[in-house]
């Protein structure tokens, strides 16, 4: 579980850092207007919020990647009764054990 969490959280963290640097270098956040008003008043706030927005987007993407990685065996009903399932099978306990 820990490793899956790392897989979901960590790559987006790296990418968000790079994306935030690139984005805020190209655009001064104070010049981003929403209905004629600056969207965010402080630059440090904008960099911070920008970083977390990028991170959240990346997390969503990584979660979907992990979700779609599940093979057919993990999605379909298992033909074996639980106690006959091989050791290590995520379905050996019950449906909660998967992922």
């Amino acid at each position: 579980m820990m490793q899956r969490l790392i897989h979901i959280l960590w790559p987006p963290f790296l990418v968000a850092g790079v994306a935030d640097i690139l984005f805020t270098t190209l655009f001064d956040p104070l010049e981003i207007l929403y209905r004629g008003e600056p969207l965010i008043e402080h630059r440090i706030a904008a960099y911070t919020i920008g970083f977390f927005v990028f991170w959240l987007l990346g997390i969503a993407s990584s979660m979907l990647t992990c979700y779609f990685q599940r093979g057919a065996d993990e999605i379909n009903r298992c033909p074996l009764p639980p106690r006959n399932r091989p050791a290590g099978c995520p379905k050996r306990e019950d449906e909660d054990a998967c992922c």
Binding site: P81, P82, G88, E93, D94, A97
Partner: peptide
């Protein structure tokens, strides 16, 4: 998902987890 739901003791979790993720 299965018809034959069998309660497994909680202690059985550990070895299985170990094989999934070291």
């Amino acid at each position: 998902m299965t018809d034959d739901k069998q309660a497994t003791p909680a202690s059985a979790d550990a070895p299985i987890e170990q094989q999934l993720y070291a």
